[in-house]
Design a protein around this nucleic acid. Structure first.
Length: 416
RNA sequence: GUGGAUGUAGUUCAACGGUAGAGCCAUGGACUGUGGAUCCAUUCGUUGCGGGUUCGAAUCCCGUCAUCCACCCCA
């Protein structure tokens, strides 16, 4: 039997209701926040991600699906959305000359990781990017937007973590202090942290090893090293959040794995995702547009994992999914009538289905029930003779005869 | 990339080295024209795959693949 590659899944109808709930919540919120959809390519020249995310990041150095096209150019299946949106924005003269643009995207991302709970090789994200403003209001807006989406989707018990990792002016000071501190306690570090010290010192703060936890207590804090501008920016973001009624927790240990972030970083975390704890995250990236060859343009954005949000919605009743009408017949001439009625109802905007095979009433009603039909419409010998149909409300069990020509209207009224 | 666990019917799981089974689902019947409840019946398998040990392997061993979980990393 043929099978799918590891970490890639088929999503059958039973999961679609839950996904739509999430995606619709996102679309509604984006509309409310005046954020417009952009469809970005599923693959880019590899350079887009190398330049965008940073050569040293894990994503770029070992998690990308990269291959050569027929012309020998290196292409990569997108591991995230921001780099593509920035590339598209910079490349498109019509949009990048506007003072401000807000975009959102929805679609699959690809990372060659070992799959586990909440972590797939092909997974879906939606995300938003706000270009053209360095104002802390927009940092707030990004967080508030994601918060609104989570709430609309019905996700509870999560925490919003917020931090500032400074800018190119003040971050080097912090990294220097951090490196100095951890070099001093080098012997106490776990294996992974020893390599982080060289590779990516910021991530030392993110270590989950028990033995490394005590070391964090005295480690330098990002917020203590911020320059005046970053400090005031950070303060304003927090002020907006408090004013906007968004509960958040300051987390000086929050650093992100991508190189492009500046100043604000944030994560939406929960304890219900196993080894993974974030279902959405983002931050400010004021230098990326310029990095991509655009004019200096501050920006802020976030991305959310749809499958992770799905996990948080598990066990929740998702309404809907049933059809309006299932048509029951006895074959022969009644089958012809049933087919005609089925087409008529569908044409009238009423969802309808039937089984053309010759089955007993019982089997057909069973099927109507399983399909979640609101009504069963019976066309049998009796109805044929009388020129009527029997309409049964499957919830109440009530049924009544309705003239054959008036079914669509009758159903429509009942559904309203 | 590292580590651990697990692979048996559509699904959830049983079966001491000795005939592969049950619940759920599905299909049909009880109910000749009425679903959800109940009862009854029926269908369903190369025991993931490949080797090995054995008179005999779902069971033990080796390999492999897959899944899950954790690390790493990230949404």
């Amino acid at each position: 039997m043929l099978s799918k590659p590891p970490g890639i899944e088929d999503i059958f109808p039973d999961r679609i209701g839950r996904r739509n709930l999430i995606v619709n919540a996102a679309r509604e919120a984006f509309k409310l926040y005046n954020v417009r959809e952009i469809v970005i390519p599923v693959m880019e020249f590899t350079e887009v991600f190398v330049r965008g995310l940073g050569n040293e990041t894990d994503i770029v150095s070992k998690e990308m699906f990269t291959f050569e096209d027929r012309g020998g150019r290196s292409l990569t299946l997108r591991p995230e959305g921001t780099a593509s949106v920035v590339r598209a924005y910079v490349e498109n003269g019509e949009y990048n000359r506007l003072a401000m643009c807000k975009f959102f995207y929805i679609g699959p991302m690809f990372r060659a990781e070992r799959p586990q709970k909440g972590r797939l090789r092909q997974f879906n994200q939606f995300g938003a990017e706000i270009f053209g403003s360095g104002d802390p209001f927009h940092d707030f807006e990004a967080i508030a937007m994601m918060d609104a989406i989570a709430k609309r989707a019905g996700i509870g018990d999560y925490t919003v973590l917020v931090n500032s990792i400074g800018c190119p002016n003040c971050r080097p000071d912090f990294v220097r202090a951090l490196t100095a501190y951890y070099t001093g306690v080098k012997d106490l570090l776990c294996r992974d942290c020893a390599s982080r010290l060289d590779r990516n010192p910021l991530r030392l703060l993110d270590c989950k090893q028990d033995s490394c936890q005590p070391l964090k207590k005295d480690a330098p804090r990002t917020v203590d090293y911020l320059c005046d501008e970053c400090k005031s920016h950070h303060g304003s973001v927090k002020g907006y959040l408090t004013g906007g009624g968004i509960a958040f927790t300051e987390d000086p240990l929050l650093v992100r794995g991508l190189d492009y972030y500046t100043r604000t970083t944030f994560e939406f975390v929960t304890a219900r995702l196993g080894g993974q704890n974030a279902f959405a995250a983002g931050g400010r990236y004021d230098n990326l547009v310029e990095e991509f060859g655009g004019k200096p343009t501050p920006a802020v954005g976030f991305a959310a994992g749809i499958e992770r949000m799905e996990i948080l919605l598990e066990g929740k009743e998702i309404p809907g999914g049933g059809i309006d009408v299932f048509i029951v017949h006895t074959g022969g001439e009644t089958l012809a009538k049933a087919v005609a009625l089925c087409g008529e109802l569908r044409g009238a905007g009423i969802s309808a289905d039937m089984d053309p095979g010759s089955k007993g009433f019982k089997a057909q009603f069973k099927k109507a029930d399983r399909e979640g039909a609101a009504f069963a419409v019976v066309i049998g010998e009796d109805e044929l003779a009388a020129g009527t149909c029997t309409v049964k409300d499957l919830k109440s069990g009530d049924q009544e005869a309705v003239g054959a020509g008036a079914i669509a209207d009758f159903i429509r009224k009942k559904l309203a």
